[in-house]
Computed example of a mutant assay.
Amino acid sequence: MSIIGSIGNLAVDQAALRLRLDTASRQVSTGQKAQVYGDLRPEARRAIDLRGEVARREAYANAADRALARADATQTVLGRLQEIAATVGAEALRAKTMATTGAEALARTAAAALAEVAALLNTRHGGEYLFGGSDVTAPPVPDAENVTTGPMATAITASVATLDATNAATVLADTVTAATDAATSPFSAFLEGAGTTEATRAVQVADGERVQIGVFANRGQDGEVVASWGRELLRNLAVMAAVTPALAAEGGGWSGLMDSVASAMGVAATSLANEQAMLGAAQQRIGAVSDRHQDTLVALRTQLGSVEEVDLAQAAAEMSLLKLRLEASYEATGMLSRLSLAALLR
């Protein structure tokens, strides 16, 4: 073979070496075997399938994390509401025996609790209201700031003011009407309409597996609307906020009114505890599914790494070797070029 032919062969080899060196350099830089799936043949299909499964599991795990954060925020509010129901309910029983002094203190305590409950029911997490059902952009209690003087409280105050020795049952019935009638209800039009029957919010945590995490301000965990814990809290707190020393001094229906309020607050506290328990069970279920996703993701990413990622130490060693071979080839080309020039000059 002539010197010119040898130089040509070296040039072809050098082009191939440069291509391999470029590939090795990119692999060392990125840690990936290839830039496109086509270069992963025959493992391209497996890589695509693994990436799809990783994305699917990540989506479920992220949804579970968001749901758990929302449930945690909801649990905090429910805990405080349960505390208010138990505490103020006990205050009603104490006020029953303390006459005028108890009535005055009870009214102040209940008014403050009423404002707090309304504000708590309007709690938001991640920019969404927690207790408004699917209407996440509107507050469940539209006029929470003025709930102590709003239509429900005003109507209840007027009813309580008529209390005498014979009409406690009528007064209580009127307060229920004030808390449920569309004109005086403290809840949003959505909650008093479609929100009374819509499905509870749930999160998709796996294929074919949804877990309910929604809690409605106007519905109990058993679906009860009229006597739901939220409505009973607001109604009975408004009743207690409306009492006066004069009503307590009059006697008559005072004892029956306080017994009814204390009983209703106890039922609300129990309902809230049940709500917390159900949500806690949902959290445990979501957490368990999330853990399974995370464990599976570790295995999937390991498999994907074996398909797509390079051994950096091996790739770096190969790159160094290719550089040496390419440099040697260049030197050989230079030497042959000099020999060819010398032959031409002879």
Rank of each mutant, 00 (worst) to 15 (best):
L304Q: 02
I156V: 15
E128V: 01
V205N: 02
G256Y: 01
L322P: 08
N236L: 06
V88A: 02
L81D: 08
T170Y: 00
A315G: 09
D291Q: 13
T100K: 12
G8Q: 15
T184M: 10
M98R: 12
T148H: 09
A90M: 03
D291E: 14
A288R: 11
A343I: 12
T157E: 11
D49V: 08
T177L: 04
V310C: 01
Y37H: 07
F187M: 02
A92Y: 00
R325P: 06
S134H: 12
N218C: 09
A189H: 00
Q82P: 08
G127I: 06
G230S: 05
H293Y: 02
S263W: 04
V77D: 07
D49I: 10
T23H: 01
D295Q: 12
A173H: 10
E145Q: 15
L321W: 12
N167Q: 09
G133F: 03
Y330M: 13
T149M: 08
L120R: 05
A342W: 13
L93R: 12
G230E: 03
T109G: 03
R46H: 07
A71K: 07
K96M: 11
T175I: 06
Q303H: 06
Q35S: 14
Q283A: 14
T175W: 05
E53P: 00
S188N: 06
A179M: 01
G52C: 02
L279H: 04
A273G: 15
